[in-house]
Amino acid sequence: MIKRNKEKGIEWLFTALAFSSLVFLTGIVIVLVKEALPIFSTVSLPAFLGGESWYPTAEPPEFGIFPLIMASFWVSAGAMLICVPLGVGSALYLHELAGERQRAVLKPVIEVLASVPSIIYGFFGMVILAPFLQDRFNLPIGLCVLSTSIVLGVMATPTVASIAEDALGYVPRSFREASFALGANRWETLTRVIIPAAGSGISTAVILGMSRAIGETMTVLMVAGGAAVVPSSIFDPVRPMTAAIAAEMGEAPVGSDHYHALFAVALALFIVTFAFNIIAELISRRYRLKLGLSR
């Protein structure tokens, strides 16, 4: 009897542990929505999303987050331009060309790169990259879309490389053999068989890299420049959504419009990254089906 109760207890414990993430997620969503909603009695949703002025502390305050959204969009897009070629290129090199010894060095190095704290990337961007850009392009300030994109791109590269490399690894060896046996060379095999077969996995890698870039806070706080203006060039300083929340939350009185507006920004950010993750999951599921794997 005692033994049975003990087993029941253990079962309950694990059930509770398994469901805890669900509880956290639900809690986060509830709090975000609850704290965000009051702002929409002050501003309409279209004015909030489409408004071009973010002056939360001015009199009267203006809560248009369009500049923040654009800032997040442009730095993430710029980061993609850097981390996709770098990450996918590294994955292809590791998978196709690198010998055992090179792999043994490169793979851990990429993983260490992924584990460098973001403040170190931010520090690097602020102290080395920004002054360099300022000097090189004769800018009033080196903290801008370009510097942020570069730093975020480098940060997201290991994520992309590592997941894309796994995707390439899942392509069965028999596809490669079939291609070679038909007289294809290495390049044809890679571009026409291996990459298409791993294509969905590679797109998952890119999307996850992107959600890493869009959700990154510390780095953008340090290198983006902080101006809440819709950027007109890559040399303009910007204030992405994450940076706005981090920089302003400490000063916004609890319960004020500013406070609720920042929660609404967080909610918008959450929806975007959530959507990215859902898309990534759908793609990778399709990819498993396509290869006939059922993991």
């Binding site: 028999s174 053999e177 079939a178 070679f180 046996a181 007289g183 294809a184 298409p196």
Partner: peptide, 20 residues
Amino acid sequence: VAELRKRVGMVFQKPNPFPK
């Protein structure tokens, strides 16, 4: 070797069509 493999084709143990 590519030309050789066009002249000497191969069918494998496990059917291995491409995912196309």
